[in-house]
Computed example of a mutant assay.
Amino acid sequence: MVLKIVKTSTSNPDFIALVKSLDSYLKITDGDEHDFYNQFNNVDVLKHTVVAYQNNTAVGCGAFKAFDKDTIEIKRMFTLTEFRGQGIAAQILKTLEVWAHELGYKNSILETGKRQTEALQFYKKCKYNVFSNYGQYKDMENSLCFKKILN
């Protein structure tokens, strides 16, 4: 199966559909805190997005935005349930990291919920290290923040 990762924009209908699936998934895992987290997931601010296609079917997505002059924040990472475990998310993340590095960024950070056990394992496997919660996640008990040096 051929996987193709396409750099795109937030107006891409496949990106929009995948983000809707992601939000439905997060509404369940985040529970009562969903509205808090959701306010920080507005796609309008995202200028760097990718969609992964397997045999012309959109199966995953991801994005990043500038956090500061040296750091990007990974956002909206998602792979459809039936396509998980195939390395798709790792390829999406790698594409985002390489793109950010090409643009001169040195670090990548992200936040995920402690209840999202698959995501926690995934980011650790991708060489992200837990570091202190930043910004709006500082006082969120359910949040776990990660950082990786891009090279």
Rank of each mutant, 00 (worst) to 15 (best):
V43D: 09
K147W: 01
Q91I: 04
A100W: 07
A17H: 04
L3I: 15
F122P: 06
E111D: 14
C145V: 03
Y137L: 05
A52E: 01
F131I: 08
Q136K: 12
A58M: 07
V50C: 05
K94P: 00
G87H: 09
T71M: 06
N151S: 14
K69V: 12
I5R: 03
R84H: 08
Y123Q: 05
L110H: 01
E111H: 10
D68S: 08
A90N: 05
G135F: 06
R115L: 12
G60M: 04
K65A: 14
T79H: 02
F40L: 05
A58W: 08
L3E: 12
I92K: 00
K124P: 01
A63N: 00
N151R: 13
H101C: 10
T29C: 05
Y123K: 02
D32G: 12
Y123L: 02
L110G: 06
L18A: 07
G62R: 01
K106Y: 02
R84K: 14
T49K: 05
A90H: 04
E118S: 09
S108M: 07
E141Q: 14
I16N: 06
I88L: 07
D44M: 02
T8Q: 06
K4M: 13
L96M: 11
S21T: 03
S21M: 09
L80M: 13
M1K: 13
G135R: 02
V6L: 12
N129A: 12
L103N: 13
V50Y: 10
F36S: 07
N129S: 14
L110F: 03
G104T: 11
A119Y: 06
E33N: 14
N107K: 15
V59W: 00
A119D: 04
G113V: 08
G62H: 00
L3V: 14
G87M: 08
M1P: 10
K114E: 11
Y128F: 15
K125A: 11
Q39V: 13
Y37A: 10
I149Y: 00
G135L: 01
K138D: 03
F122W: 03
L46G: 03
I92V: 15
L22S: 02
K94C: 02
A100L: 08
Y25V: 02
A90Q: 11
G60S: 13
K69L: 12
I16L: 11
A100N: 09
L150M: 08
A119M: 07
N38G: 04
H34S: 03
D23N: 14
V45H: 08
T112Q: 03
Y123F: 15
K147N: 10
H34M: 08
E111P: 08
N107R: 14
Q86K: 15
D35C: 07
V98K: 12
L110Y: 02
R76Q: 11
M77S: 08
I72A: 10
Y25S: 11
T81R: 10
C61M: 13
S9F: 04
D68C: 08
F146A: 03
T49F: 00
L22M: 10
F67S: 09
G62L: 02
G135H: 00
L110I: 07
K65P: 04
L80A: 07
N12E: 09
V50D: 03
S11C: 04
Q121H: 10
Q54K: 14
L150F: 09
C61K: 04
S9A: 09
H101L: 12
F36Y: 15
K94M: 08
I92P: 06
V19Q: 09
A66F: 06
L18Q: 04
N55F: 06
L26I: 01
K124V: 11
A119T: 05
Y128C: 02
